[in-house]
Computed example of a mutant assay.
Amino acid sequence: MTEFARFELDGGGSVVVEVDEEPGVSRAARPGRVLRDARASFEKALTDVRDAASTALDQFRTMSRPPDEVELKFGVKLDAEAGAVIAKTGVQGQFEVKLRWRRNDLPIEEEVVEETED
């Protein structure tokens, strides 16, 4: 069964997002599609993920030799109950971090770091 969550927008209106079905919940009276209202606004749902990305970025900016470029990549999943969460791959949440240092006289140095969270 397809389920949708409606996230209100702070400026008015709403956005509807397809979400995973709640495990263990059977909706016998409403076959087909289900529309639920999300607990938080779309903006509020994304705020926590934005703050997490900002915190991770600050960690790399404060290195003893900070990189010239930082690329932080992760998936965001929207949930009617939890809001926005960092999506998992397999059994673990995943960040992909790419750090670059540039020197005028040398080619680009690149280090790729992958972090996973349980």
Rank of each mutant, 00 (worst) to 15 (best):
Phe7Pro: 07
Glu8Thr: 15
Leu9Tyr: 07
Leu9Met: 14
Leu9His: 07
Asp10Gln: 13
Gly11Ile: 12
Gly12Ile: 06
Val15Met: 07
Val17Cys: 08
Glu18Asp: 04
Glu18Ser: 04
Glu18Pro: 03
Glu18Leu: 02
Val19Ser: 01
Val19Tyr: 00
Val19Glu: 06
Val19Ala: 00
Glu21Cys: 05
Glu21Met: 10
Glu21Ala: 14
Glu21Gly: 10
Glu22Tyr: 04
Glu22Leu: 12
Pro23Lys: 13
Gly24Arg: 04
Gly24Asp: 05
Val25Tyr: 03
Ser26Phe: 05
Ser26Asn: 10
Ser26Thr: 13
Arg27Thr: 12
Arg27Val: 09
Arg30Asp: 11
Pro31Val: 04
Gly32Pro: 02
Arg33Tyr: 03
Arg33Gly: 06
Val34Pro: 00
Leu35Ala: 04
Arg36Pro: 01
Arg36Asp: 05
Asp37Val: 07
Asp37Gln: 15
Ala38Asp: 10
Ala40Ser: 14
Ser41Ala: 02
Ser41Pro: 00
Ser41Glu: 04
Glu43Asp: 13
Glu43Asn: 02
Ala45Met: 11
Leu46Cys: 12
Leu46Lys: 08
Leu46Ile: 06
Leu46Pro: 05
Thr47Tyr: 03
Thr47Pro: 00
Asp48Thr: 15
Val49Ser: 06
Arg50Ser: 10
Asp51Cys: 01
Ala52Gly: 00
Ser54Ile: 13
Ser54Val: 12
Thr55Leu: 02
Thr55Ala: 08
Thr55Lys: 03
Ala56Pro: 00
